[in-house]
Amino acid sequence: MSTFWIILTGALVAASCGIVGCFLVLRKMAMIGDAISHSVLPGIVIAFLLSGSRDSLFMLLGAAALGLVTVFLIQWLHRSGVQSDASIGVVFTALFAVGVILVSLYTRDIDLDLDCVLYGEIAYVPWNTIEIGGTDIGPKAVWGIGLALLLIVLIVGAFFKQFKLCAFDPALAAAVGIPVALFHYLLMGLVSVSTVASFESVGAILVVGMLVVPPATAYLLTDSLSRMIGYSALVGCGSAVAGYYVARVLDASISGSMVCVAGAMFLLALLLSPKHGVLVRQWKQRRFARERSA
């Protein structure tokens, strides 16, 4: 049974990150995902210190707030003349450093393990369960991530047209009256939510893998946004399942293995994707050259 819960958690994380990650990859903001996944750490720790519990709601709020602060700071620095990638680097390293120091300052008093926050311990998920009316309804993490996924699916589904236009042509979106800035911050909020929902299982650092690698794989496989989101979620879930068994065989970190499997899938798509694969294109060119010469 615990195997089932672990794989379910991994798949839910992969699906929620895979959906929001598509928009990050399309808007060329993949590194903002990296930045947010690092800088939610102080938000999580502060929420934990203030509330004194590992109640997911407080952590969710703390992390979402810090995610928005990160985006705001990055944009402010960029507007005042710093290159955008450098402003990302300055902001997230500073916030992450604050988080690590807070964790190591209070790590003796509280049960928030640094390793657990950073690269996740999905193996402990099945033991932390919720009970309602005396019956065990499953691990807390599954409910948390499930709710996050539901929220993401609802918001992206409701505003799909707006998100799509903002991703491909922000100028046109602004011209037809879509509040581009609002949707930008909404997207960033969703990234923060999926990050914090996953940090317990995948860890703050490896969330970026789930945010970027499956969407990039899907990006190589299709040209339609809705299909890209579907493929991305599928690739993410597939790597969660396969990663679990790889980790069992190797006796190593489960979340690390999940990202590695996702990386392997990306490599396959990069080389063999029917439309954009590097090898496939070479074969096509060679066949074309042969046909011409024949």
Binding site: Y119, G209, V212, V213, A216, A247, G256, F266
Partner: peptide, 16 residues
Amino acid sequence: AALAIVLSVFFGLGIV
């Protein structure tokens, strides 16, 4: 995206 992919996959491998 290339930067983020390499970063996370290498780091994942490192953690493994």
